[in-house]
Design a protein around this nucleic acid. Structure first.
Lengths: 350, 350
DNA sequence: CTGAAAGCGCTTACAG
DNA sequence: CTGAAAGCGCTTACAG
């Protein structure tokens, strides 16, 4: 499979001009006058020969590879991480950048080397995006500070590297608000205790919402494991046990969709209809649960795609030297978590 | 952020040798004698300066970028597509290759250009992996034939490009076999009619299994939409309607996990316990359904990770000129779909 | 055993 | 308006 590369020299020869001229016209080099006639000849020759510039050579010369590296920490573990990649990839394509990906094993020790970052640097990546599993803050590998870089899902402890994360708190608050507007007042939250930002943010958002509505933010909070079984148990505890229907919750907001899945099962076992007897809301908009549940689950979507796109947009502006940064590094950017209304919420029984 | 690149020249100067020598010792160039003493000096200097060769420059010179491109068609639509990327990425890392990714919008018209492929070629990708959404065969873009290439999820119509896909048929047959070994004889299959290979392969596998066990391969096949609602309806149809418990199915094998999710709901509504009263099996091992269902779903896993890894392994051997190909292109490689046994299968009621 | 030199395919001051 | 030449950072015949 010999790739008989046609080079800039071939185009120059075919057009009867110098390679300099070919380069100028094909790149529209500013401050360069070339006669229209010559331009046309060059373009025709290039098209004729199917000339495509070798990006490697160009990169070597311009010291800009046109590549940005996405380092994903244990990509497989995050549901929907694929959408981060998709967002980053599409934004990169829009800008003529190529996205390279390396997945790294989780590495919490900051002192340890990060050969993945080095691999990107060796390849002259113009910028690097580090998508961490969701921890609060992270001390970033040294190598990350010598090249334009951006963080997804965690804040840089030193506050130097710009970062994005989902506004979990705002999303959770908006759920309570939705429920309140539907007429609910006894709104439970099935929380979890794992120490990750999502867990705290969502609980805080719930409390924000309850407080804003003048409701008790503690009465209906229960804690369980963040899985279907936990949602099941939490819901049974909330709605059963001879709980007076007049005082028990009319809605249960679950920490995530998997717990909501368990909540559905609990409701069914208790002979309760969703949403007529009890409204249920999840969080994550996790495909395919949210849509496959019956009735379809009202939940909150995470801005994975948007975070990926934001990351390349931001790293691109760092590359171009537009340093709204220092500014940027200090505070993480929070992206909206929109509610996806489906069919699991209704006004409470009169 | 000035990256003060240390180059091979700096190492040469520091070690007091020529760049030629530095290159030889750092690359262990064969057929080259260098005194141990010199080697040691060079290595020391390189380490001291933290020298990392510029892969762009090397690539330009050697005409091997060390990069393989993964083109994913609508990655977002396939559940678990992330695992294809993960498999490809990790295998690439093992071989010192970099994986670049481009997602393309679905493009069924073979005549239309595929700029994504061209983008990889411009960047001098050593090889290209084309991961299609799951169609039977595909006519590959011309550009793909000028560079080592490999297909995931579809066969090349011209039989030139090697391809992998899951052995859906074998996986489905093994499910029936498992059920038969547990003592089931009235095994239903909730099929779907969408015209994709998975749909045909799984049905064929079911029939293979039934035939192999001397059972009627048609009696218990029903068709429904490939979603939870379809699984629900199929199961209701199979088990209700005054069906005699002595003649109705004791197990329902669903085309996919989402349908299985509906089947669970149907069973619950009919007052049937899974797996005591009815065994249910899915297909896809779709996270998080399979694990979150109660009881946890026995299902069949798709070899996404393995297909990704196979693809870079194969494209790497094409690159190295090991052309077990022509051979390779003719027939798609089928990868095992292993059963994941969880808790939704039990012997039928005596 | 070691090194000078050409060249990979481009871009970009610089000169004319 | 156009082109000759240097150079990006490597590797690799080739010579000594």
């Amino acid at each position: 499979m010999p790739r008989e590369q046609v080079g800039i020299r071939d185009v120059a020869a075919a057009a009867g001009v110098s390679v300099t001229t070919v380069s100028h016209v094909l790149n529209d080099t500013p401050h360069t006058r070339t006669s229209e006639h010559t331009k046309a000849r060059v373009r025709a020759a290039a098209a004729e020969l199917g000339y495509q510039p070798n990006r490697l050579a160009r990169g070597l010369r311009t010291r800009a590879s046109g590549m940005v590296g996405l380092l994903t920490e244990e990509i497989a573990t995050t549901p929907h991480a694929g959408r981060i990649i998709l967002g980053a990839q599409e934004e990169a394509s829009r800008r003529g950048l190529t996205l390279a990906i390396i997945n790294s094993r989780l590495n919490t020790d900051p002192e340890v080397e990060t050969p993945e970052v080095q691999a990107f640097i060796d390849r002259q990546a113009d910028g690097i995006i580090y998508a961490t599993v969701y921890h609060d803050e992270v001390v970033t590998p040294d190598e990350l500070h010598v090249v334009p870089a951006v963080l997804i899902g965690a804040r840089d402890r030193e506050g130097e590297i710009p970062s994005v994360m989902p506004d979990e708190r705002g999303g959770a608050a908006s759920v309570v608000d939705l429920l309140v507007r539907k007429g609910h007042r006894r709104i439970a939250f099935a929380a979890t205790s794992v120490d990750v930002p999502a867990t705290r943010g969502r609980l805080q958002g719930y409390r924000d919402g309850m407080l804003a509505a003048g409701l008790d933010p503690d009465e209906f909070v229960v804690e369980a494991v963040s899985e279907a079984s936990g949602g099941y148990e939490a819901t049974i505890g909330l709605l059963d046990h001879g709980r007076d229907p007049a005082t028990r919750p009319t809605a249960v907001f679950c920490y995530n969709d998997r717990m909501a899945m368990g909540a559905y099962r609990a409701a069914a076992e208790l002979g309760l209809q969703v949403p007529a007897d009890v409204s249920i809301v999840g969080f994550d908009d996790q495909d395919p649960i949210a849509e496959s549940l019956f009735p379809a689950l009202t939940t909150v979507a995470l801005p994975h795609y948007e975070m990926g796109a934001w990351a390349v947009r931001t790293v691109a502006s760092l590359i171009e030297g537009r340093d709204e940064v220092g500014l940027l590094g200090a505070h993480p950017v929070l992206l909206d978590c929109p509610i996806v209304e489906r069919a699991s919420v209704a006004p409470p029984r009169a």
